[in-house]
Each structure stands twice: as structure tokens, then as C-alpha cells.
Design a protein around this nucleic acid. Structure first.
Length: 297
DNA sequence: TACTCGTGGTT
DNA sequence: TAACCAAGAGT
């Protein structure tokens, strides 16, 4: 069981004050972004760096300023506009979320955490993030940044566990400020601290507002001792093949012949498996004449 | 729980 | 330079 801090609130002021001074001016943090802008940014930021999201986000919001605008287009258009952000199923899910918002919620991103969680592509983190950032609610927002900040500052470990644990959720709830607007500020501030200062590889403890209260630093910054953090191999995987296949379809204007897809990968068994997977995921639509395209439905 | 699912910059 | 890492979700 993780040690609970005796006085959790001592961290609030220094972290929030630091955020007041150092927060990045990101477009989804501006008031004009609105709940839909926040939701779009959260989908795009899943496992994807801010710098790569920025241009796609701007284009997306300019083209589809409301959920209903996106829902009115074929899902393949969302996949195409997703570009090279990676994990293109997120584009499909964002389109599905826009459709659900249009049908079930009158075109407005729901405020209720449970209704957010029911949307495709919205999990524990994204539901809490939208409720907190877009609507100022009090939720424990546990992303990779916050988990790392808490692991170090409170638990004294260099890295959090591979998967989010019940202990981490309990700790995050215990650390949450009581007042709703303060809690929302805290959520954004702890994420930003992890993104800018308490980074994974080489944290800048000299710039950290809570370095004096950091359990990991106090322990001498011991190296991670648990099980090795699972690496992400990519070369030669189905994911790489899927990426190459989908890139052809994204860049094509109309349907693509089988031969154009065959050209991106030598090994026919893996190639066929990857294409089948894309079709099964709804990212690719096979036509009766043997060609393929991004999905119209 | 552990695994899949993209892409590209950084070290 | 191969490995690490990036505002996770779904199964």
C-alpha cells in the first residue's frame, strides 16, 4: 500500500502557483476552444506529443467546429484528416463520439462523467480530463504525467507501475483539492509539471516547485528497480504494415487497387493479415470490384 | 492482466 | 543507434 501523505494540501499552492507562471499557451486551453475543442485535443493527445498535435488540431477545429459538423461526414474523412498522428482508430472513435453527441446529447459535449465515459474512445482518463478541463469539475485526472509526478513526489519511485493501480487512484483522490475550481486547476497543473519539469528521462528538479518535498529526490533519486518497462518494438510488426497500407489509402483520392497495397510490403501473409485487421476495425472498406477505400459509413 | 494499436522526435 | 518516450482505449 502506498504511503499517504500526512498533509496533502501542502503540495497544492506551490504546484498551482508554478502553473500560473509557467503554463503553456495551448489552443485547447483558451476559452474559445470550448468543450468540443477540449475533447478533440484529448483524443489527439492520447500517446501523442503536443508538438505533433498542434497543426492537426487547428485544421480539425476549423473544418469541424462542432460535433455535428464532424458527424455529418463519412468516417473516412476523419481518418484522412487524422494524417500521421498515429493510432488512427482514434479518428474513427472521435467520429463515433461526435455522432453519439449529436444523436444523444443534442450536439453538446456532455458534462456528466458517466455520459462522457459511455462515448467511444473515452476512457477513464479522457472522461475525467474533459469533465475537469472543459467544465471545471473535480475529478482525479491520472495520465502518464500525473502518475509519474505522484510516483516520485509521494511514493518515492522513479516511475509508476506499468498499469494504473487502485493505490494510484486512491492516492490521486486523496490529493485532490476540496474546492471544485481548485481541483480542476490542480489537475492541469500536475499534468503540466510532469510534461515540462518532472519528465521521464531527465527531470529538471532544479526547476521543480516541490523538489523540497519530493520523496524520490529525498531518497537520493534511486533508479527504477521493478520489472522492466515493456519496450515498444515496431519494425516488422503488423502495426508498421497497417500504417503503410493506410497511408496509401489516406493519400489516394478514390478507391485503390489491390496492387497498390501489395506494393507496400513484401510478405503476403502478414500483409493480408494487416489488411484484414484494418477492414475488421472499420478503417478500410473493401469494394465489390476488389479495390479498397477509406470508409464511407 | 497483458497485449495490441502508429508515428516520429530524442538520447 | 537502438531504445525510449509521448494528455490511453479496448479487449
Amino acid at each position: 500500500m502506498t504511503a499517504m501523505p500526512q498533509t496533502p494540501t501542502v503540495l497544492h499552492a506551490p504546484v498551482i502557483d508554478w502553473f500560473d507562471e509557467h503554463a503553456r499557451d495551448l489552443p485547447w486551453r483558451r476559452p474559445e476552444a470550448g468543450p468540443w475543442g477540449v475533447m478533440v485535443s484529448e483524443f489527439m493527445l492520447q500517446q501523442t506529443p503536443v508538438s505533433r498535435v498542434l497543426p492537426v488540431y487547428e485544421q480539425w477545429l476549423a473544418r469541424w467546429p462542432r460535433p455535428a459538423d464532424l458527424a455529418a461526414e463519412p468516417p473516412g474523412e476523419a481518418v484522412r484528416a487524422w494524417g500521421r498522428l498515429g493510432y488512427p482508430r482514434r479518428a474513427l472513435r472521435l467520429h463515433g463520439a461526435a455522432a453519439a453527441i449529436t444523436e444523444r446529447h443534442g450536439g453538446d459535449v456532455p458534462r456528466d462523467h458517466a455520459k462522457l465515459l459511455a462515448l467511444p474512445g473515452v476512457g477513464e482518463y479522457t472522461a475525467a480530463a474533459v469533465a475537469s478541463f472543459a467544465y471545471g469539475q473535480r475529478h482525479a485526472v491520472l495520465d502518464t504525467n500525473v502518475r509519474r509526478v505522484f510516483a516520485r513526489a509521494v511514493s518515492g519511485a522513479q516511475y509508476p507501475p506499468n498499469a494504473t493501480t487502485a493505490a494510484e487512484r486512491k492516492l490521486a483522490r486523496a490529493l485532490l483539492p476540496e474546492e471544485e475550481p481548485v481541483a480542476a486547476r490542480w489537475a492541469a497543473a500536475t499534468m503540466e509539471l510532469g510534461a515540462l519539469v518532472c519528465t521521464a528521462r531527465t527531470p529538471s528538479c532544479a526547476r521543480c516547485p516541490i523538489a523540497g518535498r519530493c520523496a524520490w529526490k529525498a531518497a537520493g533519486s534511486p533508479a527504477h528497480d521493478g520489472p522492466p518497462r515493456r519496450g515498444q518494438t515496431y519494425a516488422g510488426t503488423d502495426r508498421q504494415v497497417r500504417g503503410k497500407l493506410l497511408a496509401v489509402l489516406r493519400e489516394a483520392v478514390g478507391p485503390v487497387p489491390q496492387s497498390a497495397l501489395d506494393a507496400v510490403w513484401d510478405e503476403p501473409v502478414q500483409r493480408a493479415r494487416a489488411l484484414d485487421g484494418l477492414v475488421a476495425d472499420g478503417l478500410v472498406e473493401p469494394l465489390a470490384d476488389g479495390t479498397y477505400r477509406l470508409p464511407l459509413t
